[in-house]
């Protein structure tokens, strides 16, 4: 069995309020294999985005990790000096965000912004980096990459901007791409294209993806393995197929039942959606049980 690319072990993270610490992640553990697409799904406040910020080392005060390890290729990122972490970011671990407009510098052309990645992380000259940037734009299927490279972010649509973000993130062929709600701000048809692009590029290059979303459909169509988060805990983890076919945790069952499902009304007539609170007796007890299916068992639990 291969070693995991990212191995998060019992990560505890909290926000300091005066003298006390309020825990936000209460011991998260999961692994991402090289080339694997792993999905974290959860509602607002479940801690899924905090997990990604912790991996990137972008936590700001008063947020702080108070326990656990984040092993990336066997190295604990939490113990890494700032300088080494900066080298890793954008180079080996890249990230794309929900709102591409705020993540791009409005005062610089997108060609230059992509080229900067090559200059910064690969020591290329600006001329060569510029050519590579046009190539990177072509790779994310931006039409007329030559002309587009000279555009400023505000001259592009949301879908194109997100493609630019992907081009920047994948510029240095990272080992891990973190995608935090990358399509939430986009229209559905654009979302479908961007998701397909991420899937194709990452499987071509063998890039592992940590996909974070509240949308079960997005996660299901992109990831091989899924973790469900609730209130700072990973309550269920399984292969995607197994998770959707046979959810074990009552919270997962509630989430799946609460979704109106495309096509179900034509097949079965209109059925009342499951009110998650009607099947969950006590939300405070939700995190007491966890179902983590072991890997390599095709998702079946003994």
């Amino acid at each position: 069995m291969t070693a995991p690319l990212l191995d998060i072990r019992d990560l505890i993270l909290g926000v300091a309020l005066g003298r006390s610490v309020r825990p936000l992640l209460k011991g998260i553990s999961f692994q991402i294999m090289p080339g694997e697409a792993y999905g974290l799904v959860g509602e607002s406040g479940s801690g899924k985005s905090l997990t990604s910020l912790a991996v990137m080392g972008l936590l700001k005060k008063p947020l702080a990790v108070s326990g656990g390890e984040i092993l990336f290729k066997g190295k604990n990122l939490l113990a890494l000096p700032q300088r080494e972490m900066r080298n890793l970011r954008g180079n080996r671990i890249a990230m794309i965000f929900q709102e591409p407009m705020t993540a791009l510098n409005p005062l610089s052309t997108i060609g230059r912004q992509i080229a900067e990645m090559f200059v910064l992380h690969q020591g290329k000259g600006w001329d060569e980096a510029g050519k590579l940037a046009v190539e990177a734009l072509a790779n994310v299927r931006v039409p007329n990459p030559d002309r587009r490279a000279r555009n400023y972010p505000h001259q592009m649509s949301g879908g194109l901007r997100q493609r630019v973000m992907i081009a920047m993130a994948l510029a240095c062929n990272p080992d891990l791409l973190i995608a935090d709600e990358p399509t939430t701000a986009l229209d559905v048809t654009v979302q479908a294209e961007v998701l397909r692009l991420i899937k194709e590029l990452c499987s071509e290059r063998g890039t592992a993806v940590l996909f974070i979303s509240h949308d079960l459909g997005v996660i299901a169509s992109t990831c091989q393995r899924v973790g469900v988060m609730y209130a700072g805990c990973l309550v269920e983890e399984n292969e995607t197929q197994a998770l959707f076919a046979d959810p074990k945790h009552e919270y997962t069952r509630g989430l799946l039942g609460a979704l109106p499902r495309l096509g179900s009304r034509s097949l079965h007539g209109r059925q009342r959606l499951v009110d998650i609170d009607s099947i969950i007796a006590d939300r405070s007890k939700l995190t007491e049980t966890r179902f983590i299916a072991p890997r390599g068992t095709e998702g079946r639990q003994p």
Partner: peptide, 30 residues
């Protein structure tokens, strides 16, 4: 009527829109 739109959409744009919805259950069929 909703039945017509969702089972036999005629316009290519409607089809594209419906096909773009990521469906967790479709993913189960790999």
């Amino acid at each position: 009527p909703w039945q017509q739109i969702f089972t036999s959409p005629a316009h290519p744009y409607t089809r594209r829109l419906i096909a773009a919805i990521p469906d967790p259950y479709a993913a189960m069929n790999r």
